[in-house]
Design a protein around this nucleic acid. Sequence first.
DNA 1: ACAAGAAGTCTACAGCGTAGACATGAGGAG
DNA 2: CTCCTCATGTCTACGCTGTAGACTTCTTGT
Lengths: 224, 224
Amino acid sequence: MPAAPSTARRRSRPPLTPAGIVQVALDLAAERGDFSMRALGQKLGADPMAVYRHFADKNALLDAMLDAALADFQPPGPDAADPLAGLRRMSHDFRAALLRHPGMAERVAMNRPATGPHTLELAEATLGKLFRLGLGASDAISGFEALVQFISGFVRAEEPVHARDDGGESAWLAEMQAAYSAVPADRFPHVARMAAQMPEQTLDRQFEYAIDLLLESLARRARK
Amino acid sequence: MPAAPSTARRRSRPPLTPAGIVQVALDLAAERGDFSMRALGQKLGADPMAVYRHFADKNALLDAMLDAALADFQPPGPDAADPLAGLRRMSHDFRAALLRHPGMAERVAMNRPATGPHTLELAEATLGKLFRLGLGASDAISGFEALVQFISGFVRAEEPVHARDDGGESAWLAEMQAAYSAVPADRFPHVARMAAQMPEQTLDRQFEYAIDLLLESLARRARK
DNA sequence: ACAAGAAGTCTACAGCGTAGACATGAGGAG
DNA sequence: CTCCTCATGTCTACGCTGTAGACTTCTTGT
């Protein structure tokens, strides 16, 4: 029988791998809503510093997490009949994928170029649809940036709403309505009017409306 | 002559006021790009904890800072000829105001209802223009949310670009172009094509393009 | 004149990312 | 089989964050 190591270290746990770390990190982020290196170490059953043998720093790990998070995203075939419907579906799928993995929307923003394979595939497919729509290079790229910026920004904003420990979105909607109802209607009549319409301003609905605004204009520019 | 206090405390500095704190806090955020309670205390020449006598916590202070940051925003008169031009101008002014005060874009996002007077005035003016455009209540509100979400999200994303210690936006553009140029053109032809067009994808241009997409669709819905 | 309350200070705690030194195990070379 | 080397994991510690709680000091009303 092998001598029980005094401070059982190596054999107690399969060795860490980059892919394994990323997986556990994504799980942790999904469970807790946020994510720290120390919490990751605990969930791995290892010292937090062990992760630094596989990733240069937290930034590098988050980059890897983003690309892994986008792995389950399946772009529709490039030769589908209606490119506009494809773009709409991809927008919703992209939002859903980001919501499944809290903290990843922030990484999509423009501070770093996204070069992971799955990220590139998403970009490639979206650009393909925009070109197929009939847009020129300049419009397609600008439209692509507009969509990416809006979607990532929207998810960054809605994440804390979903993460509320009270009722989540419904509690948030009620709070917003209460706030707008308390506004003096003589000085801010339009804002006060907004209160009545708040309950139907679901996050889903807000997102869909804005995406349709963007896509509608893009389609119009393609037609011209 | 008044006895010099051993630990000169009270008379050495005018007493703190909420408005004064907010002003210094905005200055600090503008200088440093970010902002901590300890740095604020130092700039105030007071103990960091002194701020807590005037604001419940950092959140409350940031709320006050946001409304103060929006104070210099002047909405155009409600009876200007072209509501669409007014909306475009307000969008650009709103972005500029947020950029002048780093960290404030994040507060515009939806986690808390914005109830400061200047914030409300901005909302009121925007909604007024949308109604004047001919939109119904539902479209006006959804359009308002879309604009606010896009603008705040865009500024949140571009802030770190402007805050780079190297060349700022131009260095970022160069980095993006280099990254996209390195992408294998056989697997990701559209992305590779994007590299050539990167230099003209200024933040100003991206913003303007996306805002025009949104406004164009809104105007079309108003006309119908 | 004296109590009461406001305003500012001080210390301390739990959390964060991570640099740098150290311990431990596995694999290759002699 | 033995020794050396290197990869992997651990440990400690530093400077940073927001802020709770106790304490000190000054101002003000009676």
